[in-house]
Every structure is written in C-alpha cells, then in structure tokens.
Amino acid sequence: MKTEIGIKQEHLAEVAHSLGKILADEFVLYTKTRKAHWCVTGPDFHSKHLFFEAQYQQLEEMVDEVAERIRTLGHFPPATLKEFLALTHLTEQTREKNDAAGFIKELLSDHQSILIHLRENIDGYAKAFHDAGTSDYITGLMEQHEKMAWMLRAHLE
C-alpha cells in the first residue's frame, strides 16, 4: 500500500535511501562501541566497560528509531551487515591495542563524522524533499550525537 503523507513518492524514496546510509553509519558505530565495551583493557577497565555499555545502549535505540523512520516513510531499511558496510561512510576498526583512550578517540571521530554528515543534510530534507518531519528527526539525532561526542571528548581532556 502506498504511503500518502503529503510527500511525493520519489521524494519518499530518496529520503528513505538517505536514511539508509545514516542507519548504516549508526549500526557500524553501535558495533564498534559494543566492541569497545567487550574488549577494553587497562586499569580503568570497569569504568570504561560501563561507559561504553551506556553508549551502545543509546546507539541501539537510535538504530531502531532510524529503521522505524524509514518504515514510516513506506520503505524497508537495509538490514544486513553486507548492506550496512556498502552504505556506511565509516570504517571498521583496524587498531590492535584495546586501550580506552584508543577506543574513545576512534568513537569520537566517528560521532563527529556522523554529525558533519547529518548537519550537511538537515536542510535538504525540508527544502529539496518537502519533508520537515525527517529534517526535525535528523536534528534530534544530531543532538544525541553531540552529547555522546561531548561525553567521549571529556574523557580525553
């Protein structure tokens, strides 16, 4: 059944595709954060283990919300690791050392990369695709990443 919400079908498809890329980024970042939770070592293990757990739990909710936004627009989200890796602009971790500072720097870099991407596209949803709802949604998503990045950055100061 067609989604009739006042947005042209071709615009819904373009927004859904764009959100699919965001979903891929979110899922890759979620996976990397979960890895940090599982693999962190060092004298601050316990506190960082709990810190990364709180972050991946927040990202897990964000992943689900992005996928549901795509469904709200009448499309199906990418949902396989192969699709996520093809769509993401993030890279998988290549470091060998499992220290907290290394994980934090890499995760912070990914959050900042996602923030830049989101910020560059907020206006386009409203202006080019006439989808103020997704523009507003992306603004909220951006704010969550800003706070998560701040929390990571604070560990490095």
Rank of each mutant, 00 (worst) to 15 (best):
56 Y>S: 06
89 H>W: 00
56 Y>D: 02
71 R>K: 13
34 R>G: 07
46 H>P: 05
40 V>P: 04
96 E>T: 14
95 R>W: 01
74 G>A: 04
45 F>I: 00
79 A>W: 03
80 T>Y: 02
85 L>Q: 13
37 H>P: 03
78 P>E: 11
50 L>I: 09
38 W>K: 05
61 E>V: 09
45 F>R: 00
71 R>C: 05
78 P>Y: 01
93 Q>F: 06
39 C>N: 15
59 L>A: 07
62 M>T: 14
62 M>D: 11
92 E>M: 08
70 I>V: 13
85 L>C: 08
80 T>M: 11
93 Q>N: 13
78 P>M: 05
65 E>N: 10
73 L>N: 06
75 H>P: 08
74 G>S: 08
82 K>L: 14
43 P>A: 15
93 Q>K: 11
59 L>N: 03
91 T>M: 11
56 Y>N: 03
87 L>P: 00
92 E>P: 05
84 F>S: 06
54 A>M: 12
46 H>F: 11
71 R>Q: 09
74 G>F: 01
97 K>P: 05
87 L>E: 10
45 F>Q: 02
41 T>R: 12
89 H>A: 13
73 L>S: 09
88 T>Y: 03
43 P>S: 15
39 C>T: 14
82 K>P: 08
51 F>T: 07
67 A>Y: 06
55 Q>T: 11
73 L>T: 03
69 R>V: 06
58 Q>C: 05
59 L>D: 04
57 Q>L: 15
62 M>K: 11
53 E>C: 04
37 H>N: 01
36 A>K: 02
49 H>M: 06
46 H>I: 08
78 P>W: 00
39 C>L: 15
89 H>S: 13
52 F>S: 00
37 H>M: 01
63 V>N: 01
81 L>G: 15
67 A>Q: 09
55 Q>Y: 08
96 E>L: 14
56 Y>M: 07
90 L>Q: 03
37 H>S: 03
48 K>D: 00
88 T>G: 02
58 Q>K: 12
71 R>H: 05
95 R>K: 13
85 L>K: 09
72 T>W: 08
92 E>Y: 12
37 H>F: 08
95 R>V: 06
91 T>H: 11
78 P>D: 09
75 H>C: 10
69 R>H: 10
65 E>Y: 02
56 Y>A: 03
47 S>C: 07
81 L>Q: 12
74 G>H: 08
71 R>N: 02
37 H>L: 02
73 L>I: 12
56 Y>P: 03
53 E>T: 04
